[in-house]
Design a protein around this nucleic acid. Structure first.
Lengths: 369, 369
DNA sequence: CCAGGTGCTGAATCCCCCA
DNA sequence: ATGGGGGATTCAGCACCTG
């Protein structure tokens, strides 16, 4: 049963037909920045499942034979996840979505394969289908798991952009988003909904804005009618879709043709201070913005320190960087010297960070960027 | 190494010392209606964490939360779940709570053992701890799983009572409840929090109202400081607690002594068979059961509000119906004012729902029901 | 008595570059 | 690979104090 697979180049912004496990195995390793996966959880699919040795799992229709069906689902999960993992760049990440039918098995297998869970996120549906028989709670949410490829991955997280999306408050792990209805819901020629579990674009919008950058490659191995691709294309990300059903692929192709990518300037998002160019404190002295020997005053004006010619400070029994001296004086584990230390101008105390901003402004002025 | 265990009778309304797996193995099979379990989460924390103001976060670093590997945690989960399962009556059910660190392994093992998941429920914290380094989403929720012993269990679900708790709308799978702080949070002699992970009583209140009946037996194998027992006792349910740490047991004993069980008539919950007559809150004032100006006290005694002559309440910065004011004070989408607000009689706090029951009794007149 | 400000805390897998 | 050091980072609720 061994199949010869030729590793192709990664075809960007295309939908690939076929079984996602086989297709992924033929793609180049470590070529993808983000994976979004909405795998099937319908246990009726078990007839199409394969064990790791590629033997087919017998169709088991008996409802009581849960153990075998869970095992088959776990085998399927293990295989596609391993194939997906291979494609991820070392600093890549994955999102999976599911309900209580499958999310626990999915999450456990993610952990087993060495993915590092960063958050579980609750998609809280503002308009869920009620529980008609009154025997359970309204199933009003689905669960997403966001995980990096490994514990030490430097994953992408646009903290400031998400905070801005959330009215200036840190984005939480529970997201209120309506289900996909109305004109967004795709129909087939017969007027029926084209796909049973089409996800809202708002969900993918938040995921892609928050955990990818423009130009990144986003892979969706269960592409369906292409929500991931549509949002990726709109947001200037590259997508790779894999879908087994020809009908879904055709609908997705037509959908993607209509998407107009947004211009680059709109795609710029708020960035954190971490992204700003580094300015050594010594430059302030070199450029004469602070004189050697000048006195600096701590936040709260409890301590003083003197600037030395090499860009270090000297205070009472302490010397070192602006950060180190501040931390030692405060007895704190760390200290941001830029906001901690102040200098005197016209009798007023001004944070030295103002001088850093001045230098940064000059730097960006030189480079028209 | 075989240990002879004598199967004792089930000791009701007591806290049992020792390892919960061993203790459960010594209890009689099929004797429990509901299990609530808050097992260790296996947090796997690395270094210290500081807030932006440099204060240190008091982490959950207790020995009982340390496991060497996922394998070790899975073994532990398998054993305690199996022991718990044996104790459940055929129509019994279980609730477990966890975070992304452990909930996927917990859910998968529940399924493996033949439990039938009925819902996963999201506890949305109205006041979670933020993410201090801006590297992830605020971890603003925990996940509960509600499962019956088997697929065909006729589990208890008080649909109408929960609907009433939710202002007449079907209860959803996401619950907004504040974390346990303030006066509800138990302290030890040193003034520190007595238990690092004490759960809010409101969470147990909803679980016990929704999925048990008065007189049922509720087992909590990780009893801690006894939240499950306290709410069970208040609501006229029997509890069995198991806790390994003597210090937690002593605190729980003292806590439970103080709990006053509610009278039986208050515990009757709505049934779908016969709708209870609606009683406007204003009738309590008209009839002189409550005086205008009288002070009401919130569940948990955190808030107060004053009764106005028109049957509305006025609290700090809020006025309106008993439901609306309760919801606003709690920051919750809704609130059942009848069970939320209490008045003082003979120095004790009594839910205003008792007065409604009184009026209903009068209304039903000849029918003693 | 109220308004406003300060301080503390909560189940947390919480940095990243460079030598 | 590992260590050192620059320097970035928080929301809601309650207790307590001051004016």
């Amino acid at each position: 049963m061994k199949k010869e697979t030729t590793r192709t180049e990664l075809p960007l912004n295309r939908i690939l037909g076929g079984d996602c496990i086989e297709v992924m195995r033929a793609l180049p390793a470590e070529s993808v920045d983000l994976i979004f996966a909405d795998p099937p959880y319908n246990l009726q699919l078990r007839g199409e499942l394969h064990r790791p040795d590629n033997s087919r799992v017998d169709a088991v229709d008996d409802a009581w034979d849960q153990f075998d069906s869970f095992r088959a689902y776990d085998d399927f999960t293990r295989e596609w996840l391993a194939a997906a993992r291979r494609l991820l760049k070392p600093d890549g990440a994955i999102w999976v979505i599911g309900s209580y039918h499958n999310i626990f098995r999915l999450g456990a297998e993610l952990q087993n394969q060495g993915f590092w869970i960063l958050n579980d996120v609750i998609w809280r549906k503002s308009n869920p289908m009620p529980n008609f028989r009154g025997k359970r709670f309204t199933n009003a949410h689905e669960t997403l798991i966001w995980a990096s490829k490994s514990e030490n991955s430097r994953y992408t997280f646009n903290y400031e952009a998400l905070k801005a999306l959330n009215e200036g408050v840190q984005m939480r792990s529970d997201w209120v988003i309506p289900i996909c209805t109305g004109s967004e819901r795709l129909k087939n020629e017969r007027g029926e909904k084209a796909h049973p579990t089409q996800k809202p674009e708002a969900l993918l919008h938040r995921i892609l804005i928050g955990t990818t950058n423009p130009g990144d490659v986003v892979l969706d191995p269960f592409f369906g009618t292409g929500t991931t691709g549509a949002v990726a294309r709109m947001l200037g990300r590259n997508y790779v879709g894999i879908e087994r059903e020809a009908e879904y692929r055709e609908i997705a192709e037509r959908r993607l043709e209509k998407v107009r990518p947004l211009p680059a300037d709109v795609l710029e998002v708020s960035t954190s201070k971490r992204a700003e160019p580094r300015v050594p404190f010594g430059q302030l002295v070199e450029r004469g913005l602070l004189r050697p020997g000048e006195e600096l005053y701590s936040l709260g004006n409890r301590f003083r320190a003197k600037v030395r010619a090499d860009g270090t400070l000297v205070g009472k029994d302490v010397k070192g960087s602006i950060h180190k001296v501040g931390a030692q004086l405060e007895g704190a584990p760390s200290c941001n010297g830029w906001t901690y230390w102040h200098f005197k101008r016209d009798g007023k105390l001004v944070p030295i960070d103002m001088l850093r901003q001045q230098i940064r402004a000059e730097m960006s002025g030189a480079r028209p960027n």
